[in-house]
Design a protein around this nucleic acid. Sequence first.
DNA 1: ATTAATTTTCAATAAATTTTGAAAATTCGG
DNA 2: CCGAATTTTCAAAATTTATTGAAAATTAAT
Lengths: 168, 168
Amino acid sequence: MKLIEAKQQFISSWGAFGTHWGINRTMAQIHALLLVSPDPLTQDDIMEELDISRGNTNMNIRELINWGLVERVLLQGERKEYFTAEKDIWKVVKQIVKERKKRELEPMLQLLDKLEDVEGDKRDKHVKTFVDTVSSIKKLGKQADKTLDVMVKAEENWFVGNLLKFFK
Amino acid sequence: MKLIEAKQQFISSWGAFGTHWGINRTMAQIHALLLVSPDPLTQDDIMEELDISRGNTNMNIRELINWGLVERVLLQGERKEYFTAEKDIWKVVKQIVKERKKRELEPMLQLLDKLEDVEGDKRDKHVKTFVDTVSSIKKLGKQADKTLDVMVKAEENWFVGNLLKFFK
DNA sequence: ATTAATTTTCAATAAATTTTGAAAATTCGG
DNA sequence: CCGAATTTTCAAAATTTATTGAAAATTAAT
């Protein structure tokens, strides 16, 4: 397979993949493009490669920057802004985990804390089932939260260390 | 907070949560409703509680069954079908991981295998960056795959065992 | 300060996804 | 086998989400 074709497949699959994870297609595609580009690209480069509008490109680049996955690069003597993606995949994963933890897991745990205090007689099976379900989700969520903290702080690839611990 | 209100909040947040994970709102809400319901519910119960149409209810229940998160229950002497959700959250998580692994991670790894074989001179930085990126994603993906296998096979809560290993 | 290059915004539009509801299919008791 | 109850399907409609593109804002060189 030729590079051009492989690149297109990579970008398009990464985009489809993203949609299964609540990330919009274009954002994932821009990320994929930057991941496989050796040098920083401009907004115009990205627009052209992916055949998307200026506004769309701009908004999604900014979103990638918010996620900490892409950064602006200023090339000396150049007026235009360039963009580049972190290439160390382990760092990318840690960054995504960190953000999703903050944006989703933590607010969910806060809500569960509140919901666990529901009024009512625990002998009522509706109350009991509700409280038990909420508690067990909360418990698991808190453990996941701690585990992910360890993961995010890990310098080297956490999965490797993990497997070693399991199999030794 | 009263049970009714807490339940509504739980269902609605679970739905919103789902949309961040590529799961449709209704499917997540039906799942939430069944999780906090002590007894199995019929399609009509679900339609009424969530105020959604018969078709929508039916399709999403079936999808939850495909995911292995909900099962049909036949109550003796009853013509209607009843539905119930697995209440053990650890089992729920394992089931979701198992499915997503099969549906997403594995096909992605297959694709990366193919893309890694791109033709071209590795001294060309475009080729090199592409191959390096694909390889490193593949490597991490394969490790994650193995780790998740361990997790899916774990009888008790994997996060707990995990943390213990880290802190001992 | 002027102006041209560049980036950002956002209302309008397009596309994708979800939901409805009625018709068709299936199931099951008698 | 009949018919009522129940489930399933799916085209059309509604809703949500993503994209466009032109105008506004910003930036930086002269």
